[in-house]
Amino acid sequence: MTGNLNVAIIQEDLIWENPEANRNLFSQRFEQLNEQVDLIILPEMFTTGFSMNAENLAEPENGKTLSWMKDNARKYDVAITGSVIIEEDKNYFNRLFFVYPDGSFKKYNKRHTFTLAKEHLTYTAGTERLLVEYKGWKICPLICYDLRFPVWARNTQDYDLLLYVANWPKTRVNAWDALLKARAIENMSYCIGVNRTGEDGDGYVYNGHSAVYDSLGILQSSEDFEKTFIQEIQLNKEHLNETRNKLRFLEDRDEFTLK
Rank of each mutant, 00 (worst) to 15 (best):
L179E: 09
L130T: 04
Y204E: 11
E133Y: 12
V151L: 15
G103K: 01
L162Q: 06
E119N: 05
I139Q: 00
E199G: 04
L162D: 02
N195L: 12
V194A: 12
V173M: 11
Y145S: 14
A182I: 06
H112L: 10
L131C: 08
D158T: 06
Y134L: 14
G193F: 08
R183I: 01
L180M: 13
R196V: 15
L96A: 10
H120P: 00
K75H: 13
T124V: 14
G198M: 07
G201N: 07
N187M: 11
V151F: 13
R95L: 13
G193I: 09
E87Q: 11
A166V: 10
L162F: 10
D160L: 12
N155V: 06
T127H: 14
R129I: 04
I185H: 02
M188N: 05
I192L: 12
P150F: 02
L180W: 02
Y123N: 03
F149N: 13
H120Q: 09
G193D: 09
T171E: 14
L142W: 07
R95W: 07
F114H: 14
V99Y: 05
N187E: 11
K106N: 13
T81F: 03
E186F: 04
G103I: 01
V151C: 01
D158W: 03
S189D: 11
F93Y: 08
E133L: 06
Y206V: 09
V173G: 11
N174Q: 12
L179Q: 11
N109E: 15
I192T: 13
W176P: 03
W168L: 01
D177M: 10
Y164W: 08
I139T: 04
I185L: 08
N109M: 08
N195I: 12
K107L: 02
N109V: 10
I192M: 08
P150S: 03
Y206P: 04
Y76H: 13
D89G: 02
H112R: 12
R148K: 10
E88W: 00
K135L: 15
S104C: 00
P150K: 06
I80V: 03
D102L: 03
T127D: 14
T124C: 08
V78S: 08
F114A: 14
I143C: 01
K110M: 07
A175R: 14
A117I: 03
S104E: 03
D160V: 12
R183D: 03
N94Q: 11
F105Q: 03
T197Q: 06
H112G: 05
G208R: 07
L163V: 01
M188P: 00
Y206S: 06
V84T: 10
F114G: 04
I80D: 00
F98D: 04
